[in-house]
Each structure stands twice: as structure tokens, then as C-alpha cells.
Design a protein around this nucleic acid. Structure first.
Length: 211
DNA sequence: AAAGAGACCAACCGCATTACA
DNA sequence: ATGTAATGCGGTTGGTCTCTT
């Protein structure tokens, strides 16, 4: 059983050293057996904390930066379908975590009705800056186009009848977007998408941290 | 320049579910 | 069949940053 003595586990933000220990452990032993991480690594973190850190931050294949319009559309649609089933929704957004989607929903859509245009624009500028830092996989021009789109109603934009032109689509990794619109209305399930869409990390842990 | 407000996100907590002895 | 440990999930909180006033 996990040690749960009050004050024994370290809490708060993870340090790079802790991240590296956890990453090396999982690189060598694989995911799972979270409760034994502290024993094997010396980390003073609970299994839950280790799992959360791995899933939300360290796991290879995670995307950083702003969600694409396609991803937003998927979130909107799947949330309409399933509600707050964040982990389920996340399975259809490769590289995104349930936590990320949950946060995104809360900040972008839940309070959307109360956001002013000014606030929206501000948010977008910030997202642009953030994106610039985290990823260079999408061209600047497509960012600009995307952000223009975001100034309008995202939800309206993604109504199936008036979906964006194909030229706006970022060539996404795999299963995004189009597949969802092909769902039959009466279907309450989604196409079979392998849940293991994360590419296993095959390199050296140290190399990963030097990226 | 400083204070306030809002956005963003990492991380924690508690409950539910699953696995296993 | 049952109790316990481990894991997963959703809700929430708190810190930091940026922009506005």
C-alpha cells in the first residue's frame, strides 16, 4: 500500500530532477506500478502524483501549445455527446490530456458567454505567443488564419453544415475531425480508434530531456 | 507605476472502479 | 465472495503571468 502518512509525501511543483527520475524509471520499467515508483527511485511522491505528472506532462507524444481549430471542434462535439467525460474525449485527441481539455473547456467555453471581444482577442494574442514558444509545426500564416477564425464564434464555425474549407485544415496526426462528421446521427459510439495512439518513446531518457 | 481582473495551467483531493489475493 | 490496494477520473484550487484601468 502507498504510504499515506501525513507530511511524508512531497507536494507542489515538480523539479527537473524529479521529472528526470520519474522519466528514467518509466523508460526502464514502463507505465504502471505507480506505487512502487517512490521505492525504486527515491522520489518522495505518491503514486497518484507520479502518474499524474507522467500522464499530463512527461509522457512522450504530448502536444504543447494551443489546440487547433479541429481539436476545438472535436471537443465541442464530443462534449455535447458525452458531457464532462474528459478522459474519453482525450482519447480522440492524440497528444492531448484530459486535464488539458478540461482546463481548455473551462476557460474557453464555459465562460464564453461572459467574455468580451477584447478579452477574446487578448486571449488569442497570448495563445499565439505561447504557440510560438512551444511548437513550430504550424506555419505562422495558418496561425493567423486560425486566430482570425477564433475571433468569430468557434461553435458556429464548426457546425457541420458550414465547416471550414479543407485548405484550413492542418494535416493532423491521424484520426481527427473528419471522422467525427462521418458518424451516423444515431450512433452513440465512435469509430474504432486504437487507444494506444501515443508513440512509445524509444530513445534515451537523457536525450529526451535535452530536447 | 501600481492595483485589480482574468486567463492559463499544474497539481491536489476525493470518489469510483478495477485488480488481486 | 469479500476485503484491500492500486489506479483512474472529474472537480477544484492556487500560483503565475499578462493586460487593463
Amino acid at each position: 500500500m502507498e504510504q499515506v502518512a501525513a507530511g511524508w509525501w512531497r507536494k507542489g511543483p515538480w523539479t527537473p530532477q524529479e521529472d528526470q527520475l520519474l522519466f528514467q524509471y518509466i523508460s526502464q520499467n514502463g507505465e504502471g506500478r505507480w506505487s512502487s515508483v517512490s521505492k525504486c527511485t527515491g522520489l518522495k511522491r505518491s503514486g497518484k502524483s507520479c502518474r499524474l505528472r507522467w500522464v499530463n506532462y512527461l509522457r512522450p507524444g504530448l502536444k504543447k501549445g494551443q489546440l487547433t481549430p479541429q481539436e476545438e471542434g472535436i471537443i465541442i462535439e464530443l462534449h455535447a455527446l458525452w458531457g464532462n467525460k474528459w478522459s474519453t474525449i482525450a482519447r480522440y485527441l492524440p497528444g492531448r490530456t484530459d486535464n488539458e481539455i478540461k482546463n481548455y473547456w473551462r476557460t474557453h467555453f464555459k465562460s464564453r458567454n461572459t467574455s468580451t471581444a477584447k478579452q477574446q482577442k487578448r486571449k488569442i494574442i497570448r495563445q499565439q505567443q505561447n504557440d510560438h514558444i512551444h511548437t513550430n509545426s504550424v506555419s505562422e500564416s495558418s496561425h493567423e488564419k486560425k486566430n482570425e477564425d477564433q475571433l468569430g464564434s468557434i461553435i458556429d464555425q464548426f457546425l457541420p453544415a458550414e465547416s471550414a474549407s479543407s485548405s484550413d485544415f492542418v494535416p493532423l496526426d491521424c484520426y481527427l475531425w473528419g471522422g467525427l462528421w462521418n458518424l451516423e446521427a444515431e450512433n452513440d459510439h465512435l469509430p474504432n480508434i486504437p487507444p494506444d495512439y501515443y508513440h512509445p518513446f524509444e530513445g534515451d531518457a537523457v536525450d529526451y530531456f535535452l530536447l
